[in-house]
Every structure is written in C-alpha cells, then in structure tokens.
Amino acid sequence: MAVKLIEERCSICNQCILVCKEEAIKGWEFPVIDYEKCNECYRCVVYCPTEAMVKEV
C-alpha cells in the first residue's frame, strides 16, 4: 500500500509536508510525494483535513 494524493480534494494547506518525518513530501503548490523516501507511516493521511491524501490499496 502506498499514499496517493487526490488533487481535486486537496486544499493545498500542505499540513502533510509539516508532519512527514521522512521529508518525503515537497512542494509549494500541490504536494509531491517522493516514494523513495516514503515509509508508509500514513501520518500525512491522518493529518490531511480534506481526505486528499489516501491509502492506495
């Protein structure tokens, strides 16, 4: 399972960037996930207020 961004839901609050311990999410616009760095902790999913970050099954 990986994390996926659903752009149509994203408000670009970028809280996901603030909470990612691996610094795997970057961007000054819609967040961009670096899957090499992502350890699938899902903090970004938990902290996303608009359910734009989702667990991809």
Partner: peptide, 14 residues
C-alpha cells in the same frame, strides 16, 4: 527558508 506555503482553496479547508 520558506517554511510553509498554503493556499486554502477548497470549501472543505478554506
């Protein structure tokens, strides 16, 4: 450094 940028574009989190 620019620490954090946000745009708040959606009704769900404006």
């Amino acid at each position: 450094e620019i620490l954090h940028v946000a745009y708040f574009i959606r009704q769900a989190w404006p």
